[in-house]
Amino acid sequence: MRDFRFLWTGRAVSLLGSWLLVVAVPAHMYALTGSVFATGLTLAAEYLPALLLGPMAGVLVDRWDRRRVMIAADVFRAGAVAVMLIGTPAAIYVAVIAESVGAVVFRPAAQAHVPAVVGTGRALSSANSWNAATDAVVRLVGPPLGGVLLVWAGFEVLIGLDVASYLVSAVAIACTRRRSSEKTGRSGLKAGLKALGELKLARTLLPLTGVFLAANAALSALLVPFGVRNLGGSTQVGMVLSALGVGFLAGAVAVRWLDRVQLRTVLAGAQLGTAGGFAVLFSAQELGIAMIAAVVIGAFGSITVVAPQTALQRVADNEYLGRISAVFLAVEALATLIGAIVGPWVAESVSLSFAAMGAAVITAVGALVGAVTVPRVMLAPKRSNEQADSHA
């Protein structure tokens, strides 16, 4: 597990550096331009590379040494972020897009590399649980810390910290060993799509994941106006978001104990729990109830994301895993964009309550469909895999 510790360290440090800029970059752009639209474009720019380049990035990830791909992606992202020091709006847009290009390459490489490092037994559940828990902690700490540092130290210092975080990540990954067991594919995107189509689990999870993420994005987009209108203001919204982070952390810890439960049961239960949490949240008139519902949403939402990822890493041929992961990441970006646009549009056309409850119902229906269609996988890992983990 030595190599995983290096991977986890690099990922955690670079993730924290990125989340420090989640608030700082839009705030700095707004200070430069005074335009809400220009500020919003910085967020939209993050999704473009995943939509346009995601599947092709998966081809490169499966064709090259994934360890070197991750190192190169980190160095590239460090250089991309440094471009923001130029200070012009155009430079920031270019930097955001370039950084996202690096992430589009890094994420499928990391998802495909982890099972090669820790095996596909129980250690894989633990590794994904650790990563998800790290995501939750960074999401809680990064944005407010970035906002404080922006005021106290300035935008340039935050840029320097993010550049340094990517370089630290590259060094940590360089300290790992190349896995001789990790095969690199020689075929292109067509072969990867064929492998995805032949894998019933991936074929079933792809549309279910898209529907869930689109509904979740719609509800997330409605949370701020709902909180301001019904819960009292932006401070209350921040408390609800913190509760979501706490729930996400709890779910990340819990998911490691679900190996002996079938994926269809875990996924259906988690999605139904998420739908119920959203229904309660968007019906709440008191902050306390809203925060409890947010914890429930975060916990079940975390399980909904991590459990299918672990199952795919177990059953997919590692030779094609980068391409399969990249397709899922592209669907994630597309679904998020659709949900973020459709949710507010329905809220303005009909009502916020109708849009929120509609998205919650869609999430629940997706859960019921998944309970019937998802293959019977994610039982206890095979003994051979457990033994492989003990020698990793």
Score class of each variant (00 low, 15 high):
V137K: 14
T184P: 06
N128E: 06
G147A: 15
S384M: 09
R314I: 00
M84G: 05
V104C: 02
A78L: 09
G227N: 11
G210D: 02
A333I: 03
A133R: 14
Y320G: 00
L158Q: 12
V94F: 06
A371T: 08
L150D: 05
S242E: 08
V163R: 12
G301V: 04
R139A: 12
H391K: 11
P115A: 00
E46H: 07
A279V: 10
S234M: 13
V104E: 01
N230T: 08
F212W: 05
L51M: 07
R63E: 04
E348I: 04
D135Q: 15
T204I: 10
M357S: 13
S234K: 12
L124M: 07
F37H: 00
L258S: 01
A153K: 13
A340T: 09
G322H: 03
G119F: 00
W257A: 14
A27V: 15
L249A: 15
P108Y: 03
L267K: 06
I86K: 06
V69T: 09
Y47N: 00
D65F: 05
R11F: 14
N318S: 09
Q271P: 06
V163Y: 10
F37Y: 01
L321A: 03
A50G: 05
A218K: 04
A252M: 05
L51A: 04
Y47C: 00
F226A: 04
L368G: 12
G40L: 05
T274K: 05
V350R: 10
P207H: 06
L312F: 01
T310K: 02
G277S: 08
I341Q: 08
S18G: 09
V168S: 01
T336M: 11
T176F: 00
A72L: 12
S35T: 02
A195Q: 12
V305R: 14
R376V: 12
L334G: 01
Y166N: 06
A347Q: 00
L7V: 15
V22L: 11
V118D: 00
G269Y: 10
R107P: 01
R178A: 08
G227Y: 09
Q387I: 11
A359T: 11
G227P: 10
T304L: 10
V171E: 04
S180T: 09
V346F: 00
A364F: 08
A290V: 10
V365H: 04
A311Q: 14
R186L: 10
G339E: 05
